[in-house]
């Protein structure tokens, strides 16, 4: 009975911790909410010093969603391509080795990607930005005159590279689960390999693909250090991808935390609470899809 009780308590720790995260973030954020002289959700800038603190998460929340969405836009097609390559195209032994390498890529700490993005990848992206501006500069998103470099473009490409492994490995597993019968039936009806994948593999894995993309999204929304190093940290809401700019809730916390006083830290905790709520919703939705799917597979 003692053992059982200990085990039950340890299991319940997960629930306790999630509840505690919500409670403590709310408690420590309350002073910030109370003393904020502007609307926390619609104000764009972040001044926590002085007698009349004015701060809001509008710009950071916008930046968080924008960079994550761009990263997904870049990463998802590539990740699905790699996943299909590993599950259906490459030779099995090659695929095993390459999946191993993709898993290693997932283990590389984010600060390393951030440093790489800032010190090395900066240059090709600057050139790309110049080229995009010269070629399709009439589009508002590429309209910036520069200086190029630390921009939404750089941040979201680095972020895309970071979420690539997780989306790849999850969707690869989904593709591998496609029943052999479905695939062979499609081939027996004379379909080409691509038609087989389009008609048998992808429809079967649809829920799994959506879930893996949403888990990638959750990862992208919460990424901190890589974006703190590669974004320009400008509090503004605009659609300029190339100029110095871009900020997210998490990168703002990492960049401001060192200089913030106690009240400033409370304000950062308040913004972290919003991030927690967003990622919690995204993750719960993704897991709910996976769970419904699991029951479906179980009954099939």
């Amino acid at each position: 009975m003692l053992f059982r009780g200990t085990a039950t308590f340890a299991g319940s720790m997960v629930l306790i911790i999630i509840a505690a995260i919500a409670v403590f973030l709310v408690v420590k954020a309350i002073p910030a909410f109370q003393d904020d002289t502007e609307n926390f959700f619609t104000f764009k800038e972040w001044f926590t010093d002085g007698d009349t603190p004015r701060f809001g998460i509008a710009a950071t929340a916008f930046g968080t969603v924008l960079t994550a969405a761009l990263a997904l836009l870049i990463a998802v097609p590539v990740a699905l391509g790699i996943a299909l390559c590993l599950s259906h195209y490459a030779h099995r032994r090659v695929a095993t080795t390459l999946s191993f390498i993709i898993d290693l890529l997932a283990a590389v700490p984010s600060v390393v990607f951030g440093l790489w993005g800032r010190d090395y990848f900066y240059e090709p992206v600057t050139n790309l930005s110049k080229w995009l501006h010269d070629t399709v500069g009439w589009l508002p998103i590429f309209g910036s005159e520069g200086p190029y470099g630390k921009s939404v473009l750089l941040g979201s490409i680095v972020l895309a590279i970071m979420i690539l492994p997780i989306v790849t490995s999850l969707s690869r597993e989904v593709f591998l689960q496609t029943p052999r019968e479905n695939q062979e039936a499609a081939l027996a009806l004379g379909s080409t390999k691509w038609e087989m994948i389009r008609t048998a593999v992808i429809p079967y894995g649809k829920a799994g693909i959506i879930a893996s993309v949403m888990l990638g999204l959750g990862r992208a929304l919460g990424e901190t250090i890589a974006l703190a190093l590669t974004l320009g940290s400008v509090f503004a809401i605009n659609w300029d991808f190339l100029g110095p700019g871009g900020i997210t809730i998490a990168s703002n916390i990492a960049n401001r935390f060192g200089e913030a006083d106690e009240f400033g830290r409370s304000a950062l905790i308040a913004s972290g609470l919003v991030l927690f709520a967003i990622t919690l919703v995204v993750n719960m939705a993704a897991r709910a899809i996976v769970y419904r799917r699991r029951e479906f597979v179980g009954s099939a």
């Binding site: 997960v14 629930l15 911790i17 999630i18 505690a20 995260i21 403590f24 973030l25 408690v27 420590k28 888990l215 959750g218 990862r219 929304l221 919460g222 990424e223 901190t224 998490a250 916390i253 990492a254 830290r265 950062l268 905790i269 972290g272 991030l275 927690f276 990622t279 919690l280 995204v282 993750n283 719960m284 993704a286 897991r287 996976v290 769970y291």
Partner: peptide
């Protein structure tokens, strides 16, 4: 369910939690 959800908690939120 919440073990799976907890996997997706951003590291910065975990830091803020222990901070508070």
């Amino acid at each position: 369910f919440f073990v799976d959800v907890m996997t997706g908690i951003p590291s910065i939120v975990s830091g803020l939690f222990i901070l508070s």
